[in-house]
Amino acid sequence: MIVKRAGRLVVVAAIPAAVFLTLGLSGPALAQGGKAYQIDLAQLNDSGSRGTVMLTLKGNQLTVQIESEGMVPGQPSAQHLHGSTKGHDFHCPDKTDDTDGDGVLSNTEATHDYGDINISLTTGGDTKATSGLDVQRMPVADKQGTIRYKRTIAVGQDVVDHIKDLHVVQHGIDRNNNKKYDFEGAGKSELDPKLPQEATAPTNCGEVKGAAVGSVPVGGIETGGGTPEQPTVSVTMRDGVAITVLAAVAGAVILGRNRAAAVPGRKETTGGGA
């Protein structure tokens, strides 16, 4: 069994099904050649939000599972897979991308960092980029500010080939701490003056694979594109997953050693091997 971590990317292979069942993911997708990736969501705009995303690919079927906390209670959160499937690299932004210095990292300011919307993570219907602000089909946070989302969608081969180049962004902040989106918190949205900036500003971001700074974005600004700050918060849910995985690994190693010790005349080999 191999557990490989690279930056914020976690590639998991040959993990016992029980580990994935704790996340609501089924083992068969991996057993039949599927791939799974974990993303850690970290706050933007000092939102206090954090979370974990699991992406599971089986053929052209992509299952997206998100559990995030620190969202605005009772409010919908636009959420998307951002980035490029054409060879351009993007990354989660930081506070320095607030170019107008108003204290709010807007979608427009962030788009050059995390790229256009590739997939709108709606609860039903289409997942096109043009559905990026269709809040009627976006998940709503519960009274504790938690969002739990799971959906399986068909994706193109370009997404399958470049899944590591995409990342997740959720939107919606509460600047004046009144537990709703309003114009008093941060004014009007630059995407639609009929919407408050609080409703469209990014609240968190997580990278599937870190991207190079300074890459040229593909296309224009997509609705919902925003600027997440560089993740700096450790994610408890992620750590729980890591502990579960490491426990499974440790258990397998100990079991293997016990079995080896039980075989008369057999010596345990240490160090590297083929």
Rank of each mutant, 00 (worst) to 15 (best):
residue 3 V to D: 03
residue 92 C to A: 09
residue 90 F to W: 09
residue 229 E to W: 14
residue 259 R to N: 07
residue 132 G to Y: 05
residue 4 K to C: 02
residue 4 K to P: 01
residue 233 V to D: 15
residue 73 P to A: 07
residue 233 V to R: 11
residue 180 K to M: 13
residue 93 P to M: 05
residue 243 I to A: 06
residue 167 H to V: 00
residue 179 K to I: 11
residue 148 R to K: 12
residue 42 A to H: 09
residue 266 R to F: 12
residue 38 Q to N: 12
residue 228 P to G: 11
residue 173 I to R: 04
residue 231 P to Q: 07
residue 188 K to A: 04
residue 10 V to C: 06
residue 165 D to H: 13
residue 28 P to F: 11
residue 17 A to F: 10
residue 88 H to D: 05
residue 2 I to S: 15
residue 126 D to L: 14
residue 217 P to E: 02
residue 81 L to H: 04
residue 36 A to W: 00
residue 25 L to F: 09
residue 185 G to L: 08
residue 46 D to V: 13
residue 99 T to C: 00
residue 192 D to P: 04
residue 16 P to Q: 02
residue 167 H to G: 04
residue 118 N to L: 10
residue 133 L to I: 00
residue 187 G to W: 04
residue 49 S to V: 01
residue 68 S to F: 10
residue 137 R to G: 00
residue 18 A to N: 01
residue 93 P to G: 14
residue 257 R to A: 08
residue 247 A to E: 03
residue 237 M to L: 15
residue 223 T to C: 11
residue 239 D to E: 10
residue 20 F to C: 01
residue 121 L to M: 02
residue 174 D to T: 05
residue 75 Q to K: 03
residue 109 E to Q: 15
residue 76 P to R: 10
residue 265 G to K: 11
residue 190 E to R: 05
residue 50 R to N: 03
residue 34 G to D: 03
residue 245 V to S: 05
residue 53 V to D: 02
residue 121 L to F: 09
residue 104 V to E: 11
residue 272 G to I: 00
residue 164 K to S: 01
residue 228 P to W: 11
residue 177 N to I: 14
residue 211 A to S: 04
residue 178 N to K: 11
residue 7 G to C: 05
residue 94 D to C: 07
residue 201 A to K: 13
residue 124 G to L: 13
residue 56 T to Q: 10
residue 96 T to L: 10
residue 192 D to I: 04
residue 90 F to G: 14
residue 41 L to A: 07
residue 117 I to L: 12
residue 36 A to D: 04
residue 177 N to K: 15
residue 135 V to L: 11
residue 99 T to D: 08
residue 106 S to D: 09
residue 25 L to G: 02
residue 66 I to A: 07
residue 192 D to V: 07
residue 129 A to M: 00
residue 120 S to F: 02
residue 180 K to V: 15
residue 274 A to D: 13
residue 143 K to R: 13
residue 142 D to Y: 06
residue 86 K to F: 13
residue 233 V to E: 15
residue 262 A to Q: 11
residue 217 P to D: 03
residue 31 A to Q: 09
residue 191 L to A: 07
residue 73 P to Q: 01
residue 58 K to R: 15
residue 128 K to D: 01
residue 125 G to M: 04
residue 202 P to G: 08
residue 121 L to V: 02
residue 269 T to V: 15
residue 205 C to A: 03
residue 7 G to F: 08
residue 178 N to W: 10
residue 213 V to N: 10
residue 88 H to S: 11
residue 159 V to S: 06
residue 246 L to D: 03
residue 195 L to T: 08
residue 101 G to P: 08
residue 190 E to L: 08
residue 251 G to N: 07
residue 185 G to A: 09
residue 29 A to P: 05
residue 8 R to Y: 02
residue 177 N to R: 14
residue 42 A to G: 15
residue 103 G to E: 10
residue 211 A to L: 13
residue 27 G to P: 12
residue 36 A to Q: 02
residue 40 D to I: 10
residue 160 V to W: 12
